[in-house]
């Protein structure tokens, strides 16, 4: 802020006359700021950048949304950013759902998602429980194995992973991507480990004194207390798996095994240049993400931050 406010700092003869009502204060404050060219400039500049960014974020998907309601002829003859003649024209949606294999894709992705999430949570909590509660030979080695695995980017190793999947006879079998989603993911273990530190050991001990077995302690005490971590992991994994394109492209090429991502990817070969139909397909696939995001905004922010920083 500038320091050009000397004018209002003159001594005042009668203080009483200077006591202002709420409206006077608001007005005086606003006028005071307007008199500072730097304040005016920066405020305008800040909003301008935000508005520009918002436009940049909105225009591309908005154009796709518009296209999804247009007929093919309309799409090619009118401006791509013009409103469609009829917002109730769902022909593209009907067509893409029927011919685009989207029903199958959603079923497949859903199946993969649920099984992967289940095992990620089971294995993640179990590994975290064992590593944070017991001392045993080789524990340091196991921890080290997880640390090093984090450094290896999965994209690079797929050339060799492909051989493993092939040897296991899992090409075109959902088991392939499910195992990769479960086994090659280390960040989740870290999130669980981090949360385990916050669960007091006294709880375990109190249960032990009551005669609980270790499994019971895991099942009845640790698992319920890890709920916030579980929520974080589920959110992060759902975003990742729903959006993942790489693994299904490599390991699930067959038509019967399409996921949401690969089904959409194949649109250009199925529908050619029917951009209006393709647009409808894109919108169908975007909607669940947006709805889930708006519902779980806070948890998603927290999850993304934790996942990146702790990972």
């Amino acid at each position: 802020m500038s320091s050009q406010q000397v004018s209002s700092m003159t001594p005042t003869a009668s203080l009483a006359s200077q006591v202002r009502t709420g409206d006077e204060i608001k007005k005086a404050r606003f006028i005071g700021k307007l008199k500072q060219p730097r304040w005016v400039f920066w405020t305008l500049f800040k909003y301008m950048t935000l508005i520009l960014a918002s436009v940049a974020v909105l225009v591309p998907p908005f154009a796709v949304l518009l296209a999804s309601f247009k007929t093919s002829k309309e799409y090619y003859t009118t401006s791509k950013v013009a409103l469609p003649e009829n917002f109730l024209n769902f022909d593209n949606y009907i067509k893409v759902f029927a011919d685009g294999n989207l029903g199958l894709a959603f079923t497949n992705t859903g199946t993969i998602l649920i099984i992967s999430l289940f095992f990620t949570v089971v294995f993640g909590t179990q590994v975290a429980y064992v590593l944070s509660r017991f001392n045993f030979k080789g524990k340091k080695l196991v921890l080290l194995a997880y640390v090093i695995a984090m450094v290896v980017p999965a994209v690079t190793t797929q050339v060799a992973t492909f051989e493993v999947i092939k040897a296991l006879n899992l090409i075109n079998h959902k088991g392939s991507v499910i195992m990769l989603y479960i086994g090659a993911d280390v960040v989740m273990i870290y999130i669980f480990l981090q949360f385990m530190k916050g669960i007091p050991l006294e709880l375990d001990e109190a249960a032990k004194i009551e005669g609980a077995s270790y499994f019971l302690i895991y099942w009845k005490i640790v698992l319920p207390l890890l709920k916030p971590a579980t929520a974080t992991v589920i959110i992060l994994r759902t975003i990742f798996i729903y959006n993942d394109f790489y693994f299904p492209l490599l390991y699930l090429p067959e038509k019967s095994q399409v996921t949401v991502s690969t089904a959409l990817y194949k649109f250009t070969s199925v529908f050619g240049t029917e951009w209006t139909t393709i647009s409808a397909g894109i919108i169908i696939i975007l909607i669940p993400s947006i709805v889930v995001f708006l519902l779980l905004q806070k948890q998603i922010y927290a999850g993304v931050t934790n996942g990146a920083v702790k990972g």
């Binding site: 294995f123 179990q126 196991v142 194995a145 190793t157 992973t161 990769l180 086994g183 090659a184």
Partner: peptide, 18 residues
């Protein structure tokens, strides 16, 4: 019981391919 499968997966899909 808790480490066998996760470690198996880690080695099969991370270390062995690498």
């Amino acid at each position: 019981a808790f480490l066998a499968i996760p470690l198996g997966l880690l080695f099969t899909f991370s270390y062995y391919p690498a």
